[in-house]
Design a protein around this nucleic acid. Structure first.
Length: 440
DNA sequence: ATCACGGTTTGCA
DNA sequence: CTAACGTGCAAACCGTGAT
């Protein structure tokens, strides 16, 4: 079970970095296929919360032209024609599978940044560069064997380059799912970068790509050769960093410990339009409870609360209303009850009857750390021992007994507004009662 | 003219 | 059967009032 890990050799001069980006192919769809092999080879999409739009597509679905984020009701007909199987998202399953993948990857380097639910950076600097392709193949094999999930590995000297290498590993069969830019001859690499669209670059999206193209930067190579100073004027410091990273200068370091959030959001669209104050109040209570759990998990305190509600911007015949307000806390807190109370007060201020509300949410702001207590004299965090003991007890019970075993009564029990999830798979790995019995 | 601020918009994944 | 378009975060941007 223990595979030999390379011993990293450190030289005194700053070595060329080897940074790997490992990412699961079509992650949510692949998770579903692990537990339901009938889905293999078929066109499958996973829908966002509320069964709103496509957030993961199998290759078969991509081939049918369904874009990322396509609204479900708009391609339902196409789905029927081609037998696309649409599933609601099952975050309990994906989170659990993600944890398994991440802990396997952790065996391959002491320096890991978990970048998203399905992506991880590993710093492989000092590992013999020519062997890294084999090392990457090793990761792939092990993850496939132990979790059933297919991954691709991209390696480069910066995070931006490793992202691009990963893209090549996925799209270009000659790389066989592992692509190492660092072992390619410079000319060959530039030739490859010259074939990649500028929009493939990490941080260049829907808006920036056309702007860059208008300036004549069509390929990754074009941007790599751009003048970072000049583009910084025209765009921003982020663009300058991107260009330098394309040239192999590390500007974006691995963040092994994720920095504490400066703001924490919890919001949801409703399954059905909501008009009455009480339903809104229930949902706000629930969202604030979740936000407060996140806040305490990073051991912080919030100095302000933002609460907002809005109708659907898509329904032309319904009158539109959107409002929100920020409420400063007298002193930073992480007590659910106090935060909920303030949020509900805010809701009362912005609520107007007779609108069809489609979404509500809360945001915690002016977040300060509870550890360093980097707070000025006038706003000391004052947590009564009673409050923090209660919150700690709540969190620990919910950790042990499952989410929301204990909650405020005002969160509501019926939740008629709760989101639509019409075809969710069982939580195979986290809920016994949902696992189907297999007899014979 | 410049700054700090808060609220809003933009952009990305 | 209806009607139906996500969420979380940071950074940039922008108007305003104070200095």
């Amino acid at each position: 079970m223990q595979t030999p890990l390379y011993i990293r050799s450190h030289s005194n001069s700053a070595p060329k970095r080897s940074i790997a980006l490992i990412d699961v192919n079509n992650f949510y769809v692949s998770c579903e296929r692990v537990f339901n092999p009938k889905l293999v080879g078929k066109p499958v999409v996973v829908l966002s919360n509320n069964d709103g739009c496509a957030v993961a597509r199998s290759n078969e679905v991509k081939a049918l032209g369904v874009g990322m984020g396509a609204p479900w009701f708009k391609f339902k007909d196409l789905a029927r024609q081609h037998g696309i199987i649409a599933l609601s998202s099952n975050y309990a399953l994906y989170a659990d599978m993600s944890n398994r993948v991440m802990s396997i990857l952790r065996q391959y380097s002491p320096d890991q940044e978990v970048y998203s639910i399905d992506e991880s950076f590993l710093d492989l600097t000092g590992f013999p560069s020519r062997d890294l392709i084999q090392y990457g193949q090793d990761m792939r094999q092990r993850i496939l064997k132990w979790t059933g999930l297919p991954v691709c590995v991209g390696i480069g000297s910066t995070k931006t380059l490793s992202k691009l290498a990963n893209h090549c590993a996925k799209k270009r069969p000659q790389f066989n799912s592992v692509c190492n830019f660092n072992t390619m001859p410079p000319r060959e690499l530039d030739d490859l970068l010259g074939q990649l669209d500028v929009g493939e670059i990490w941080g260049v999206g829907r808006k920036l790509a056309p702007k860059l193209q208008a300036l004549g930067f069509n390929t990754v190579l074009d941007l790599k050769r751009a003048d970072p100073e000049r583009l910084r004027q025209q765009f921003s410091v982020v663009m300058e960093k991107t260009i330098r990273e394309l040239n192999g200068t590390v500007c974006i370091e691995l963040e092994e410990i994720s920095p504490a959030k400066q703001q924490i959001i919890s919001s949801r669209s409703f399954g059905y339009p909501v008009c009455d104050y009480n339903s809104l109040a229930e949902s706000i209570t629930l969202y604030m409870s979740r936000a407060a759990v996140k806040l305490r998990k990073q051991q912080s305190f919030a100095g302000s609360v933002y609460v907002y509600i809005r109708t659907s911007p898509f329904k032309a015949d319904d009158p539109f209303y959107s409002n929100g307000m920020t409420i400063p806390m007298p002193s930073p807190t992480n007590d659910t009850r106090q935060l909920v109370k303030v949020a509900l007060w805010g809701l009362k201020q912005i609520y107007k009857p007779n609108y069809n509300y489609a979404k509500a949410g809360v945001m915690l702001g002016e977040i300060v750390s509870g550890q360093g207590m980097q707070i000025d004299l006038f706003s000391q965090v004052q947590t009564s021992p009673k409050s923090s003991a209660l919150m700690a007890a709540m969190d620990s019970i919910n950790r042990k007994m499952g989410k929301e075993s204990i909650k405020l009564a005002s969160e509501g029990f019926k939740r008629p507004w709760k989101m639509k999830q019409e075809s969710k798979s069982p939580s195979y790995t986290t809920k016994w009662e949902e696992v189907p019995l297999i007899l014979n």
